[in-house]
């Protein structure tokens, strides 16, 4: 729709769009601003200009050992994603390149496991964790989050792999490539972008997961989502500190998210909207 539009019209739409965008973004912006305020400033009325102190950040680290939940988040998000990829890449690969009559059924079934409400299996998972000593361990959460996101990972990879034309693989076979060479020289380079965006989206999902992380951890393995949730009650009125902790919890993922918006649509709609 390359259509010439008068500058006036464009400016009008621009102003409207920016107002809406800033309103939506405002809570995040205000949190960032508050994180640079002193605690006194934070509760003394609406004010967009902080005194740019870093005290809150320092205190969050020193009082609550913020580094531990942060590292837990990293380990759990990355660990569960990598583990899911290890299982999902071969599966999606096989389904995309050697489909059988049942491939579609298998994919739909995998999707259906994703529809299972987490709370429905809260009781057994909780009891299993209590009895096996997995409670409040990183490895326990890694396993649960990996299984929870596995269907999305398989699906995303599948839709990416399916876009690699089968003729290219056949061409490699005709060119004398062994299966191993085919994978190293042709498939992997073509599949890497898809795998990378799957990884990105899944890290985001795992990082923000806040049901199992809260249910299955107390202190040792608690990632940021559980840490912040517990932070809320006693620290309700220390808003600058709360804001600083929030900013640190969401900043890495916000930035990753900005880079993966396109893949997000595809991953979260199981390829139904591209």
């Amino acid at each position: 729709m390359a259509r010439a539009v008068s500058t006036q019209t464009k400016i009008g739409w621009t102003i409207a769009a920016w107002i809406v965008a800033l309103l939506i973004f405002f809570p995040i912006l205000y949190t960032v601003i508050t994180s640079f305020k002193t605690e006194n400033e934070a509760i003394s009325g609406f004010n967009m200009i902080p005194s740019f102190t870093l005290d809150s950040y320092r205190e969050v680290q020193s009082q609550y050992n913020y580094f531990r939940p942060f590292m837990n988040s990293v380990v759990i998000a990355v660990g569960s994603t990598v583990l899911a990829l290890l299982v999902a890449v071969p599966a999606a690969w096989a389904m995309a390149f050697s489909p059988t009559k049942h491939t579609k059924d298998i994919l739909m079934w995998m999707l259906s496991t994703k529809m299972m409400p987490a709370v429905a299996v809260l009781v057994p998972i909780y009891l299993i964790f209590l009895r096996t000593g997995l409670m409040d361990t990183r490895i326990g959460l890694v396993i649960v989050l990996m299984l929870m996101n596995l269907p999305i990972v398989v699906w995303m990879l599948y839709t990416y792999f399916r876009e690699i034309p089968g003729e290219i693989l056949e061409a490699a076979r005709m060119d004398g490539a062994t299966l191993q060479q085919e994978i190293v020289h042709v498939l992997t380079p073509m599949a890497v972008p898809g795998i990378a965006s799957t990884l990105l989206l899944n890290v985001i999902l795992a990082w923000n997961e806040s049901f199992w992380t809260i249910q299955l951890t107390t202190t040792n393995a608690a990632p940021l989502s559980a840490f912040i949730a517990s932070f809320s009650s006693p620290q309700g009125l220390f808003w600058a500190k709360l804001s600083a902790a929030s900013v640190m919890a969401i900043a890495p993922i916000l930035i990753m998210g900005w880079f993966s918006q396109k893949q997000l649509v595809r991953g979260l709609t199981f390829g139904a909207v591209k």
């Binding site: 769009a17 969401i250 993922i253």
Partner: peptide, 23 residues
């Protein structure tokens, strides 16, 4: 504009709830 609008989706639920509840 797109980046600003999409941002809340990446905020983890406890943080989103705290921001709204307090701020």
């Amino acid at each position: 504009v797109r980046i600003l609008v999409i941002s809340p989706f990446f905020v983890m639920p406890p943080v989103a709830a705290l921001i709204w509840k307090n701020m």
